[in-house]
Amino acid sequence: MAENDRIQRLIAAVKAELPKLDFVLGYGRGFDALHATPITVRTEADADKLIFDATCVENLATSLYAMRGKRIGIVVKGCDSRSVVELMQEKLLDRANLVVFGMPCQGVIDLAKVRVRADIAQARGAEFTETEVRLLLPEGERVLSRQDVLADKCLRCRYPNPLIADHLIGPEVEPKGVEDTYADLEGFEKLNPQERFDFWKRQMSRCIRCYACRNACPLCVCKHVCLADSREPHWLSAEATLQEKWLFQVMHALHLAGRCTECGECQRSCPMGIPILLLKRKMNRELKEVFNYEAGVDPEAVPPLHTFQMEEEKIKDRGLLW
């Protein structure tokens, strides 16, 4: 099978690089057939555990910042490679110490979408074809359309092929989307401000402040040195009120403006299923409109909000006001 051949080529490439690296971050099988889990590959035996399929949802670039100073390899999908590029753009990554194994990707599944179609809590197995997801459940086989359960980001994906790779484990994939129309924002933007606020109040009320959203974000490099935890200044109260939860999400979105590559890990990681990617999508749309800029595509580009200068040449001349 072609996919199996591709994994074997990935494993071979990883094995070839291993002697020069501390370890390689890749995907292994998680606790069942619908879950992958990141693994550290140190030995050839570890490398044989590598997998790559539609369950490999995690963006492994999230770990890169914490592993600076190590010589590591990383397995990336097209979307994940944008995080690597963005980290390079922000000088948060030493490219010379990184070996990138690029995996062109046909899209990953969104387990949230699978769950509304089938009870997968006891799934015994799963198989992925180009058009189908075949679930082996206690009651028998259940076949879903792959298109129905692909992550939203995959349905509009314009970068299925890694933008940066030392080893590209092809074949390359034809992009699905042409231009992001932000169609998903339209419904939300039709709401009036009060309705929008009511929507967010409802959603945010179930936030447990676990900060999985923050920690899963490859670009949220402050991690524990975060306004959410700061006592001096004391931005947020420890009290689990709506106001505190909401303020954090607003700040998170603002801090990612022009940096977020929409990998969606914040939303995927939320145990409470709060649609927080919507906020980042909204910011990105504004950035696109104002600056015609897209994060994590060009390693040489300077993110718009990085062009800030402490001493601007002169203040904006507003003319005579009196």
């Binding site: 999985a212 923050r214 991690k223």
Partner: peptide
């Protein structure tokens, strides 16, 4: 190796029925 994937977030401990560690802060 066990923790390289860990995001250091609070999901596991906050959802756990037995994790009971707490912080004390003044507001």
């Amino acid at each position: 190796d066990q923790s390289a994937r860990c995001l250091s977030c609070g999901v596991c401990t906050y959802l756990c029925p037995t994790c009971s560690c707490f912080n004390i802060t003044d507001e």
